[in-house]
């Protein structure tokens, strides 16, 4: 146990350093993007038909929220704020704390993407096992081909197709947003039902888009394990089919846990295309908006969140291995 704790502590220390390095780099990059929030806002207002004087007056208020001092000064301010979990204020919605904006968007991303990922993982794994066992039969072929096809279709194409199918051809689902405004947000049946209805298409798209990858990965993993000597050995020792199946499944799923953990980390990046197409106010959409509006603080916050999520996912994947694969565990204990 102490070995695992020491391993975890090492990971956390390295992760923290990594976060600081990545944050510094992204800080420099963000501040060097051409254009600034005020110019971006100004141009937008002009496009909307405001006169230059009006637009100037409207953007003047933003100056109050712009970071002060030279780049070094700004960097030091930003980093010291970071340690107090203060990521500054968003410029897009002046006065709003970046942390609040992030939290709001995270809410709309994590749950749908998490559900979508886990759903596609579970179904993909099961279908992958089946496709591997029946790989010389027609059904196995069909499953594998369906996996390749779904894996090959880009997410945004899939999103448009599903959107067209379920909102226009068979109009049973709403086409965008998070819930109908007629319902009072809160813990009531109408609101929750509406939430689920609105989340259905993004979740479905996400699940279908990643399902292909899981089925293909699991199939090849199972086929590899099926060829392993210990499976034949278990059969020749007269092991029950259910036990042999567990041997196969557990060994085959092992390499997929890494991919799962990493994709859970990536989910904080949001599903940009899907959120855009279904107008779902998640992290992906927020990130795009923050970039077009040159909202430095929000961009930095989003990048920080993605960085932390991926580093944490890596640590989780590694720690998971220590728990489920005895070979990794004893490699660590070798020096005892």
């Amino acid at each position: 146990m102490t070995v695992i704790a020491r391993r975890l502590a090492g990971h956390l220390a390295r992760g923290l350093v990594m976060v600081l390095v990545v944050t510094s780099i992204s800080f420099v990059i963000i501040r060097n993007i051409p254009g600034d929030p005020i110019a971006a806002r100004y141009e937008k207002l002009i496009e909307q038909g405001m006169s230059p004087e009006q637009a100037e007056r409207a953007t003047a208020v933003l100056y109050g929220f712009m970071p002060k001092g030279n780049l070094w000064q700004q960097y030091l301010d930003y980093m010291s704020g970071l340690f107090r979990l203060d990521l500054g204020e968003s410029l897009m919605t002046p006065g709003a704390q970046v942390t609040d904006v992030l939290f709001e968007a995270t809410k709309w991303t994590v749950l749908p993407v998490l559900v979508g990922t886990l759903l596609s993982f579970l179904i993909g794994i099961m279908m992958g096992v089946y496709a591997a066992i029946k790989r010389s039969g027609r059904l196995g072929d069909i499953l594998a081909v369906s996996g390749s096809l779904l894996h090959g279709i880009p997410q945004y194409v899939l999103a448009l197709l599903l959107g067209a199918l379920f909102t226009t051809l068979i109009p049973i689902l709403p086409s965008g947003g998070t819930a109908d405004i007629m319902f009072e947000p809160g813990f009531n049946l109408g609101y929750i039902g509406s939430l689920i209805e609105h989340a259905a298409l993004p979740v479905l798209t996400y699940a279908l888009a990643s399902y292909g990858g899981w089925i293909l990965a699991m199939k090849s993993s199972v086929v590899t394990v099926l060829g392993d000597d210990f499976i034949l050995a278990a059969e020749l020792r007269g092991m029950k089919r259910s036990i042999v199946f567990r041997y196969i499944a557990r060994n085959a799923i092992l390499p997929l846990f890494t991919i799962l953990a990493l994709s859970l980390g990536l989910l904080f990046g949001g599903a940009i295309f899907i959120e855009r197409i279904f107008n779902y106010p998640g992290l992906g959409l927020m990130l795009i908006d923050s970039i077009t509006n040159r909202d430095f603080a929000l961009m930095g916050g989003a990048f920080l969140l993605i960085t932390i999520a991926i580093i944490v996912a890596n640590i989780v994947a590694d720690m998971l291995y220590t728990v489920i694969d005895p070979r990794v565990r004893s490699g660590e204990e070798a020096g005892r």
């Binding site: 392993d228 000597d229 210990f230 050995a233 278990a234 020749l236 041997y247 557990r250 060994n251 092992l254 489920i324 694969d325 005895p326 070979r327």
Partner: peptide
């Protein structure tokens, strides 16, 4: 098995 090198479930 032949040398039984891999006749056991590694997990």
């Amino acid at each position: 098995f032949q040398a039984a090198q891999n006749s056991l479930n590694p997990l």
